[in-house]
Design a protein around this nucleic acid. Sequence first.
DNA 1: GGACAGGTGCGGT
DNA 2: ACCGCACCTGTC
Length: 279
Amino acid sequence: MLPLAFSYSSQYFSLRNTLECGQIFRYKRLPDGSYAVFSQDKYARACQQQDTVDVYTLDGDYFWRFFDLDADYGDKVRRISALSPILAQAASVGKGIRILNQDTVEMIFSFIISANNNIKRIQLIIERLCDRLGADTPFGKAFPSVEALAQAPVQLFAELGAGYRDAYLSATAKRLLDYDLDALLAMDTPSARKELLTFLGVGPKVADCILLFGMGRGDVFPVDTWLKKVYHAYFEQGHRDSDISTFFCNLFGQDAGLCQQYLFYFQRNYGQTVQNAVK
DNA sequence: GGACAGGTGCGGT
DNA sequence: ACCGCACCTGTC
């Protein structure tokens, strides 16, 4: 029923790896292996056969940009692989991962929920949030508006399973009501990061995720427990998170965020195997 | 049953 | 500035 908006063929696009590496929470893998993807109030069905991804949606332009299809990932992988042997290995298995261009506000709330949490529960909470506060669309619920989120009583967020993050979500929603988002988007990366850190529930890791996935800033490196493992396993021991982030940003520059995704994917899927093989 | 999840806010140095 | 700690909740 949805029209085919476009097909895209590249060895540098793995639908599965792109969607399942933790940068997006509103997607579903369907029994036939295709994916349903939600972003803001928009919806797409996508399926991949070999190197070709078909995207069915009413919003082709939006999802073309969403999947970052104007960027040359072959070029990125070549550049990145020269910088570190571990990264060359991580990129070779994870090369189909692309950095999604998602909505800033949706990322702010999604990653506040993500803090000290696991992916399954994050998805559940966000789904319930959309069901409860999102507007109806022909394909399901939209991500809730700032107005809806700001109007909701704090207890609602707790009821939806957000736990102690309820106050963060409520405070952030209220603050965003009369917030100049364009001014934030116009800032350079360090200034925007500093600004994001003033939001309740947004620390260094969450700020970097918002910048990377929701503001198109590739020059940040979110440090989570997985990347700490990577750093300690392949680089050095005993540094603070901020130092780890700085280390990788200096090493990888403009594509630090993409490198983070490759290393995240690598550590989660092969980390145990590789480390055992080394022992 | 404690550790672990894609950490952060807070209070004490 | 830099620790150390508590923290909702589900799962292993």
